[in-house]
Design a protein around this nucleic acid. Structure first.
Lengths: 170, 170
DNA sequence: CGAGTGAGTTCGTTAGCGCAACTGTTATGG
DNA sequence: CCATAACAGTTGCGCTAACGAACTCACTCG
């Protein structure tokens, strides 16, 4: 299929998509959050091809979202456990799930409900700015080139008019 | 490649991934949030193949995240504008961006910064439960079969032990 | 000793992608 | 009046990665 690689693009969305943006990877991660750890469990739960699963698990281990841990010798058996990096991806899946609940669930209502034990309510997942606690919507934000934006591209990006450039230098 | 269709799965993540889970679609949406509306602008901005772009835009219009609006006659020209459904997807991209900033940006720092005009700070994007305002992390939540979970699968799902079943009926 | 489990690997098909060239409509310039 | 250029796609081709299905290997249990 010859994919375009996004990993080096000056955009955290593109980089994330490059890592996790195929059809199976987010679902493998979802299963990991369900507590699934073993190859066959993933395979049965998702109905994914075993070779594809091998590849995705390998990629997630390589990206350090999962860790391959030996849990028995003779025969050697490993399980895949979430790393800190992987655990931190949960909010993204939660936001995705929320969007799907709202726009794709239809009459029937959400297939899975998330209960927030900290407060005892069903979690009403919202993406907010932690400074003010208000929702982050497109209309509330402006974008600016950050320190990680490649100097070579700054001029071009500034000319595109899509970013603020009120920042003195980098 | 014969993709497995997730659209009917009892999982909002799977359904969302089925719609948007390839490599280009999230980036097309990102560009839409940047304010890009026209075919050639998308194409130049992303370097995406024109046939692939055609297909992605069509899919996004079909999924009602974008709307194809005539902006001039003679010759007929359309632009692609975000619908309410599309605009509501912004938080997902914001969460993804945040994760990428944290884990993939490295020394250089984030390539793009998001300023939250509502409060005047750089947006510190966090996924919270709106009832209590606390972050939604995996360890804070439990999952339960919801009303939209297919009755036929309930028994099997309950047996998997991954969901609470403390709910009286559906 | 045969069935079962867990974790992959191998193989053949096909569809998704990248690239480039082509189409069609209108405005602009010489 | 003809050549360009902008815009928005469509068509065709070759590659290769994603997929499903079948196979392998190491070990355990009855």
């Amino acid at each position: 299929m010859k994919r375009t690689p996004f990993a080096q693009w000056p955009c955290s969305i593109a980089r994330t998509v490059d890592l996790l943006g195929d059809w199976w990877t987010p679902l493998v991660l979802r299963d990991a959050f369900y507590g699934i750890k073993r190859f066959d469990e993933f395979q049965r739960s998702l109905g994914i091809g075993r070779n594809v699963l091998t590849d995705r698990l390998r990629a997630l281990v390589e990206a350090e979202l999962l860790e391959r841990v030996l849990y028995q010798e003779k025969p050697a058996r490993h399980e895949y456990v979430l790393t800190e990096r992987g655990i931190d991806f949960f909010p993204v899946l939660a936001a995705m799930s929320r969007w799907g609940d709202r726009w794709l669930a239809g009459e029937a209502g959400p297939p899975i409900e998330v209960r927030h034990e900290s407060c005892g309510h069903d979690a009403d997942v919202t993406v907010v700015c932690s400074h003010c606690g208000d929702p982050v919507r497109r209309q509330d934000v402006t974008l600016r080139l950050g320190p990680g934006y490649p100097p070579k591209l700054r001029e071009w990006a500034a000319a595109s008019g899509r970013f603020d450039t009120d920042r003195t230098t980098l």
